[in-house]
Design a protein around this nucleic acid. Structure first.
Length: 449
RNA sequence: GCCCCCAUGGUCUAGCGGUUAGGACGCCUCCCUUUCACGGAGGAGAUCGCCGGUUCGAGCCCGGCUGGGGGUACCA
């Protein structure tokens, strides 16, 4: 099995593109049916025949995103324009065989033709000695294929226009280049977005004209935003780098976008890349578009976050925040965060001091009762010998007991004194981590306000 | 307009002729409890888009309709 992911570098790697890449990767990483112990090949090809919009910066971004996701390609990346000689050769062959012809017909001409012949009559040009190159489409019959996720898909030839496969200047167009490249690369399965489904018959016709056997095709449903429209920038994070910047883990992104279009088990949703590769089946892929739901991504991200080894999580968090020495703080925060971005707002006070939240202060320490509880807590903590979470807990609970309060009436003032806000990791763990001196200093400062 | 694809709770899915239509996210209640989370126990929420047909029996098969989406470029 040889598959490929062939993005056009006209922008960052979109989530939909990432899913296409992932599904191809999963396919290539499945062991061959014959039990030979070998797997397929995942090729990366950059579809850069659109010189206007393709940029090197976009290519770099796409490679970066795929690398981050861990979707390593086995071959490539190859540039489509790099295949120009071969494209020209194939083009000359079709021209010589009479499968294609030169035509000066413009888009306007095509429109007019349909005006007079009916919208269901495709445009057929007259061969000329110069101009763009169009492929001959049969007048009758259908061009169809067995889509691996949808089943039989068929297009009436009569409704198809003779597609332009090369510009007047000789440069080839997408539908022609793709077919030639897939043929040359011996691609066996083309797995791509549904927006390509109507391109397939054109490519099939190119294979036919070349006398070659086409690969098998599978078209994935598109991803939509919450409004049911095609997913785009206006729906928030739509590119892989935006997800990375938002603190999502590649493991979770892969897991989530894979789930968005297929199920791997009736009642399980947490999977690693390897597990997904083992279970993935093209014929199990959904045929209907899915809505991207960041809430669920967050949930899955939390699960993957907690599944990481502490050292590994720490490393990623240090990379994400640009800070170091986070290990102990991560240990007491990990079960309270869902994304890497959640960490600093929760535990940053352990390093940079309390946050400024006047409302939280007023609510917990602003009252006489709050100040008294805090003062008592301070006194109790000052007496603690070994400053461990357990010892801190014992001391603080003793205060609760002595004053006949509810736990929160003591813990919250302490929390706000050290963290500045009412949300933090466990209070005993936080206090212990800060140490006695620092804790007492912060409490004193709060008491002095 | 024309061509193509799709249709299970708000969202993602399981279901593959006979189920109390299962799970997950989200939402609500409760437990745990020191905040937030995590974990645990419950709950609300679906006439399986609609109408016909096939069948003893249809979410599952067939047809039509409606709705949504994609394409319709000398873009990819």
């Amino acid at each position: 099995m040889r598959v490929r992911f062939a993005p056009s570098p006209t922008g960052a790697l979109h989530i939909g593109g990432a899913r296409a890449a992932l599904y191809n990767w999963l396919l290539a990483h499945q062991l061959n049916e014959q039990g030979s112990g070998t797997r397929g090949t995942f090729m990366l090809r950059i579809e850069d025949t659109d010189r206007e919009r393709s940029t090197d910066a976009n290519v770099a971004q796409i490679l970066d995103a795929l690398t981050w996701l861990g979707l390593q390609w086995d071959e490539g990346p190859i540039s489509q324009v790099g295949n120009t000689p071969r494209h020209q050769e194939a083009l000359a062959q079709l021209l010589a065989d009479g499968h294609a012809y030169h035509s000066n017909a413009t888009a306007e001409d095509v429109k007019n033709y349909k005006q007079t012949h009916g919208a269901d009559r495709g445009f057929r040009g007259e061969p000329e000695s110069s101009g763009a190159v169009r492929l001959h489409v049969p007048d009758d019959g259908h061009t169809g294929f067995e889509d691996l996720v949808r089943g039989e898909v068929s297009f009436p030839n009569a409704a198809m226009d003779d597609p332009v496969i090369a510009r007047a200047d000789g440069s080839v167009l997408y539908n022609f280049a793709v077919a030639v490249d897939d043929l040359d690369a011996k691609i066996t399965h083309v797995v791509r977005g549904e927006d390509h489904i109507s391109n397939t018959p054109k490519q099939l016709l190119v294979f036919e004209a070349l006398g070659a056997t086409p690969p098998q095709y599978a078209h994935l449903p598109l991803l939509h935003g919450p409004d049911g429209k095609k997913l785009s920038k206006r729906h928030g994070a739509a590119s892989v780098q935006e997800l990375r910047d938002a603190g999502y883990l590649p493991e979770a992104v892969n897991n989530y976008i894979a789930l968005l279009g297929t199920g791997f088990a009736p009642d399980e949703e947490f999977f690693t890349l390897q597990e997904m590769a083992e279970r993935f089946r093209l014929d199990r892929v959904s045929r209907s578009p899915a809505v991207f739901d960041e809430q669920k991504l967050r949930h899955l991200n939390g699960m993957h976050l907690r599944a990481l080894e502490l050292d590994e999580l720490t490393e990623r968090l240090e990379q994400f925040t640009g800070r170091s020495g986070l290990h102990d703080a991560v240990a007491i925060s990990r079960e309270k965060i869902q994304t890497l971005a959640d960490f600093w707002p929760l535990a940053g006070f352990l390093f940079d001091g309390p946050a400024d939240d006047p409302a939280a202060f007023a609510r917990t320490i602003g009252s006489d009762a709050g100040r008294e509880a805090l003062a008592d807590a301070r006194a109790a903590l000052a007496e603690v010998q070994a400053f461990t979470p357990a010892a801190v807990e014992q001391a603080l609970r003793a205060v609760v007991e002595r004053r006949g309060l509810k736990p929160g009436q003591v813990f919250q003032p302490v929390r706000v004194a050290i963290a500045g806000t009412t949300v933090s990791p466990g209070i005993f763990e936080s206090v212990a981590l800060l140490g006695r001196d620092r804790t007492l200093e912060l409490i004193d400062r709060a008491l002095a306000r």
